[in-house]
């Protein structure tokens, strides 16, 4: 029994470095494996649609004819399935969070016709 069982810890806190940081002036370092957002290296993408099929939230849309790869960042839950399953390893998980957007629309990326380019060369 007794009171002030937390006294030592609370008073000790006065002489310690604060546990909190002054966000947003200061931010915490991002660990390497943090799940921020999915990035596609369009140079290597072959538009095979495997990522779109594996995605649990149907966030990815692949248009083979129009040669575009689109991701709806508002649907993506950063599960990493697409990154694991991509046969060309062109998807990566960037540790930075996607910045806020004013409109809820997917980010569309044009995929260049690399095979053809190579054939011409």
């Amino acid at each position: 029994m007794g009171s002030f069982k937390l006294g030592a810890m609370t008073l000790g806190g006065l002489f310690k470095k604060p546990e909190t940081i002054q966000y947003p002036a200061q931010t915490k370092p991002m660990p390497a494996g943090l799940k921020g957002h999915v990035v596609n290296d369009v140079e290597t993408c072959i538009l095979c649609s495997i990522c779109a099929k594996r995605c649990p939230t149907s966030a990815i849309e692949v248009d083979k004819k129009g040669r575009t790869w689109a991701i709806n960042r508002f649907r993506c839950v950063q599960c990493g399935s697409c990154v694991r399953e991509c046969p060309k390893q062109c998807l990566t998980m960037d540790p930075h969070y996607a910045s806020p957007a004013t409109q809820m629309e997917p980010s569309v990326f044009d995929v260049p016709e690399h095979e053809k380019v190579q054939a011409e060369v």
Binding site: M9, E19, P31, G33, L34, K35, G80, P95
Partner: peptide, 27 residues
């Protein structure tokens, strides 16, 4: 006491962040 508890919990969440890449949902 509430503040101290959550201060300690934050350290566990940091472990999760470093080992799984997420703080609450780990996948």
């Amino acid at each position: 006491l509430f503040m101290h508890c959550w201060r300690l919990r934050e350290r566990v969440l940091d472990i999760f962040e470093k080992t799984t890449g997420g703080r609450v949902i780990f996948s």
